[in-house]
Simulated scan of single mutants.
Amino acid sequence: MKKILSILVFFTVVSMNAQEKEPGIPLEGMASYYHDKFEGKPTASGELYQKDSLTAAHPTLPFNSLVRVTNPENDKSVLVRINDRGPFAKERIIDVSRAAAEILGFVQEGVTRVKIEVIE
């Protein structure tokens, strides 16, 4: 039973990763944003985090990928560029900069459900 469960988890992860990398195929999940304390700290790509830039962290997408993030609750969306790895919190699919979170309208809540679509 344990082996079957491991295989199922593996195929689920592979399937999700294939979807995330395929332009035009949306993926839904939870998003959070970087706290201001990360301002000026290096990201995984080597860039320094800037809360006023439209950037994001994703676990697998290549750096410099463009992603449209949409908040279905208010229908607001923003284009962000992937420059970091994460999120590391379970069930979250993307961490966005504070500027992106402000555009998406979830700074007060800290997390929200989003749809992401790889543009490039």
Score class of each variant (00 low, 15 high):
Val107Tyr: 01
Lys2Gln: 11
Tyr33Ile: 04
Pro87Asp: 09
Tyr33Lys: 01
Leu48Tyr: 06
Pro72Gln: 09
Val13Ala: 15
Asn17Tyr: 11
Gln19Tyr: 11
Phe88Gln: 12
Leu61Ser: 01
Gly46Tyr: 10
Glu102Cys: 00
Pro72Gly: 10
Pro87Asn: 09
Ala18Cys: 13
Pro72Ala: 07
Gly105Leu: 03
Ser97Asp: 01
Ala99Ser: 12
Met1Pro: 13
Lys2Pro: 08
Met1Tyr: 14
Asn17Met: 11
Ala31Glu: 08
Lys90Ile: 06
Glu109Met: 10
Lys21Asn: 15
Leu66Trp: 03
Ser32Thr: 09
Thr70Phe: 13
Gly29Lys: 09
Tyr34Arg: 06
Arg98Gln: 14
Ala57Asn: 04
Tyr33Pro: 03
Leu66Thr: 01
Ile82Thr: 09
Glu102Asn: 01
Glu120Arg: 12
Ile25Glu: 03
His58Met: 05
Gly29Ile: 14
Ser32Cys: 07
Tyr33Cys: 03
Asn71Tyr: 03
Tyr49His: 03
Thr60Tyr: 03
Leu48Asp: 00
Ala101Phe: 02
Pro87Gly: 10
Ser77Cys: 11
Leu61His: 08
Gly40His: 06
Asn64His: 15
Val114Ala: 03
Asn64Ser: 14
Glu120Leu: 09
Ile103Leu: 08
Val78Gln: 05
Val96Arg: 01
Val67Asn: 06
Lys115Ile: 06
Arg85Val: 11
Pro26Cys: 07
Leu61Thr: 09
Arg92Gln: 14
Asn83Arg: 01
Asp52Pro: 02
Val67Phe: 12
Asn71Ser: 11
Glu73Leu: 10
Lys51Phe: 02
Ala44Lys: 13
Gln50Lys: 13
Val111Ser: 15
Ile82Ser: 01
Asn64Ile: 09
Glu73Tyr: 04
Gln50Val: 12
Gln108His: 14
His35Met: 03
Gln50Ala: 13
Ala57Gly: 15
Ser77Arg: 11
Ser53Tyr: 00
Phe11Asp: 06
Lys3Tyr: 08
Lys21Gly: 10
Asp36Arg: 08
Pro42Ile: 04
Ala99Tyr: 02
